[in-house]
C-alpha cells in the first residue's frame, strides 16, 4: 500500500496531543470526569493511530513490544502490593493507607491517585499490545 502524505503528517502532529490528553485524564481522574480506564484507552488509541498511519514497525521503535509486556505484568503486581500495603498499615485489604491531603489538589486522595496511574498504564499497555498483535500479520 502506498503511503499518503496527508495521513502521515496529520498523524505525526496529532499523536502528542492525544497522549497529553490521556495523561491529563489519568492524573486528574479524582477531580474531574475521567479516570484510569478512560485515560488508558485514550493513550492506547494514540499509540494505535501511530501504528495505523506509520506502520507497526515504526510505532514499535517508540513503544517497544517488550516494554509494553513488562508494564502490563508489573502494573498488576503493583496493584496487589498497594492492596497489601493496607494490610501492613493495620487495616483491611486495599485500604486507603496514604494521607488524604486537601480535597481539590492534584496529589490528594492518597491511594486513589496512584491506583489511577497504575490502571491507566496497565490498560494502555494491554490494549495497544492486542492491536499490535492483530495488525502485525498484514
Amino acid at each position: 500500500m502506498k503511503e499518503s502524505e496527508i495521513v502521515s503528517v496529520i498523524s505525526r502532529k496529532l499523536v502528542p496531543y492525544i497522549l497529553i490528553f490521556g495523561l491529563y485524564l489519568i492524573s486528574y481522574g479524582h477531580l474531574s470526569p475521567g479516570g484510569g480506564f478512560q485515560g488508558g484507552v485514550v493513550l492506547a488509541s494514540g499509540i494505535i493511530l501511530l501504528a495505523l498511519a506509520r506502520g507497526t514497525d515504526s510505532a514499535q521503535k517508540l513503544f517497544p513490544e517488550k516494554n509494553l509486556r513488562i508494564v502490563e505484568a508489573k502494573a498488576f503486581f503493583l496493584f496487589l502490593f498497594m492492596g497489601i500495603g493496607g494490610l501492613v498499615a493495620g487495616g483491611y485489604f486495599l485500604q486507603n493507607f496514604l494521607p488524604l491531603g486537601k480535597a481539590g489538589e492534584v496529589p490528594s486522595a492518597g491511594f486513589i491517585f496512584f491506583l489511577n496511574l497504575i490502571i491507566g498504564l496497565k490498560v494502555s499497555a494491554g490494549i495497544s499490545l492486542i492491536c499490535f498483535y492483530l495488525l502485525k500479520g498484514e
Binding site: 481522574g29 479524582h30 505484568a73 481539590g104 489511577n116 496497565k122
Partner: peptide, 29 residues
C-alpha cells in the same frame, strides 16, 4: 476518600476489590 469525583471515589475507594477483578480479566484477555 478525599476524591471530589464521586465515580472515582466509589470505583477505587469503596469498591476497589471489584477493580482488581476487572484488572485480572484484562490480563487474561
Amino acid at each position: 476518600t478525599g476524591a471530589i469525583n464521586l465515580v472515582s471515589s466509589i470505583y477505587l475507594g469503596y469498591r476497589a476489590f471489584d477493580t482488581l477483578g476487572e484488572t485480572i480479566v484484562l490480563i487474561l484477555v
